[in-house]
Design a protein around this nucleic acid. Structure first.
Length: 496
RNA sequence: CGCGGGGUGGAGCAGUCUGGUCAGCUCGGAUGGCUCAUAACCAUCAGGUCGCAGGUUCAAAUCCUGCCCCCGCAACCA
């Protein structure tokens, strides 16, 4: 029961600013981490940034900085976001960390038996300093749209990693569930993709084409390409290979990734691990994308949603609420400001906030805030825990709202305010009222427990309010109603 | 015949594996009730031939066949 658990998130490339997708990564991992901690587990929770590569070098040059100074500036944006979504991470890794670089070079050497030198041929754009796929080259009629000049057919020396060698073992691990891919349709999709075998990947570039990266040990002319460098972070952050503690946490229990990077995490990464003689992660949680009004977010459309803005306006728990409940954990979801605000006002304010308020208010009013013996919440939460185990967080939090709803129905049924009127006239009334309100508090405390992984701040407030035996009023109401993007119903009424 | 997902009341979804108890939930709308509460809450109603066409069956949203439409992915893209 006190086993040490480990969860990881994808490390974003720091060439841009964080968006909803990154926030979703941190949030999902955090929900899982808090849930496991609540159940008595020790949890290590990794986050980090990917900081090498040509794009970084180019942007740094543009900004008149050396690459390291540039990333020193950029990674902070991500760190800020992690803190802002209340991610309870324990380890932050940057691929430019000294220990990481050394560890990656060690890994490279250990993978030697599976590394060979080859030649990469393809269409290359001098302006982009990058190869493009044959398909892309054809689609653009052989001319780079960004630089308006023809691609050149070039070849360069690369080191390759024999992922192909591990195809069978990886297929087996995925099919048997040793390395489980959640949801199931992603597993099917990936197995289909690799049915003809994994293809070896190029894992280095000549130094002249890639200056900002980890040097390949034993070959001054070559620099590591992203794969080995970035993927290795999941173990180097634990101290691999020199600090023994890594063994207590690896293999990871869950690795949270977006659907776009499944193939790397289910193909190249396991191959690396097998090459190193390490276990595969137990589960990959593959989440989807967040659309905006049914449209994919993109830079060109400029329709991206800044998670910081959401949190600034509505608070972090509101953010966590919407993205955990209304964006399906394992599938694509849709965000609009109207949907967000409606969920906030109806579900957080009217349902949850209000029920806390009405119970607290009745206790204060009828019993001077004194709470009787609050019974253990007796709601059956089997469905909640099942959903949490299955990594379907949205279904778990749905269950909590069923409880909120049924508590409101309960109050409507027993009508404590009616009972209060007969106190003093009927000897039964006083104990009955106390019992009813104590029951309501028991239900609220249970709701609070179940909300700990999702809305840690709100859960704490609920506990503070009720757990001492006397109501401790919080400052202001929970989730005051906000009308920025939806019409205020009273405003229209008073106008008329 | 590339792969995967999906088409259910105004909107967003569940139900399909294990046919009947399924036509369900939330939001929005209407009416009523209540007054402890953030003008909140509770109840009721409005009615969608469950993408289309066949088939199997006593019985199909649920199984089979064909077709139409939408969305992702298609390998070096973090």
């Amino acid at each position: 029961m006190d086993k040490k658990l480990y969860i990881t998130t994808a490390i974003p490339y720091v060439n841009g600013t964080p968006h909803i997708g990154h926030a979703l990564d941190y949030l999902l991992a955090d929900i899982w981490a808090r849930y496991q901690k609540q159940n008595g587990h020790e949890v290590r929770f990794q986050v980090g940034t990917d900081e090498h590569g040509n794009k970084i070098a180019a942007q740094a040059a543009e900004a008149g900085l050396d690459p390291k100074s540039y990333t020193d500036k950029m990674y902070v944006n991500f760190e800020t976001l992690m803190k802002k979504v209340d991610a309870s991470y324990t380890d932050f890794i940057r691929t430019t960390d000294e220990h990481h670089i050394k560890a990656v070079q060690y890994i490279w050497q250990k993978l030697q038996p599976y590394i060979y030198k080859g030649t990469y041929q393809g269409w290359y754009c001098v302006g982009c300093e990058a190869f493009v796929t044959d398909k892309e080259a054809t689609a653009n009629n052989g001319i780079c749209p960004d630089h308006n000049q023809p691609y050149q057919h070039l070849s360069e020396d690369n080191y390759y990693f024999k992922t192909s060698e591990f195809t069978d073992r990886i297929k087996e691990a995925i099919a048997s569930g040793t390395m489980e891919i959640v949801p199931d349709f992603r597993k099917k999709e990936f197995l289909e993709l690799i049915k003809d075998g994994l293809q070896d990947v190029s894992i280095s570039r000549p130094k002249k084409n890639l200056s900002w990266g980890v040097p390949v040990p034993g070959d001054l002319e070559q620099v590591m390409y992203v794969w080995v460098d970035a993927l290795a972070n999941y173990i180097t952050v634990l101290g691999y290979p020199d600090r023994q503690e890594w063994q207590e946490y690896w293999p990871a229990d869950v690795q949270v990734i977006g659907k776009d990077i499944l193939r790397f995490h289910a193909g190249i990464w396991p191959a690396m691990l097998l090459g190193l003689g390490l276990s595969l992660p137990k589960r990959l949680l593959v989440h989807g994308f967040v659309n905006v009004g049914g449209v994919k977010q993109s830079k060109t459309l400029g329709n991206g949603i800044d998670p910081n803005e959401v949190i600034n306006h509505y608070g972090v728990d509101a953010f966590r609420y919407f993205f955990s409940r209304h964006i399906p954990t394992l599938d694509d979801g849709d965000f609009t400001w109207e949907k967000f605000e409606t969920a906030y006002n109806t579900e957080l304010a009217n349902d949850l906030g209000n029920v806390v308020q009405r119970v607290a208010s009745m206790l204060t009013r009828y019993q001077s805030g004194v709470i009787g013996d609050a019974p253990q919440g007796e709601h059956d939460m089997g469905a909640y825990h099942e959903a949490m185990e299955a990594l379907e967080f949205n279904k778990a939090i749905d269950e909590v709202w069923l409880m909120v709803r049924s508590l409101n129905q309960y109050l409507e049924n027993v009508k404590p305010w009616e009972i209060a009127k007969t106190v003093g006239k009927d000897a039964e009334s006083e104990p009955h009222l106390t019992e009813v309100l104590a029951y309501a508090v028991g239900a609220l405390l249970q709701i609070g427990d179940l909300l700990v992984p999702f809305l840690p701040g709100t859960a704490a407030k609920i506990h503070q309010t009720f757990e001492t035996g006397v109501v401790v009023p919080t400052e202001g109401v929970f989730f005051p109603r906000i009308y920025i993007h939806t019409p205020d119903p009273h405003a229209t009424k008073t106008k008329v």
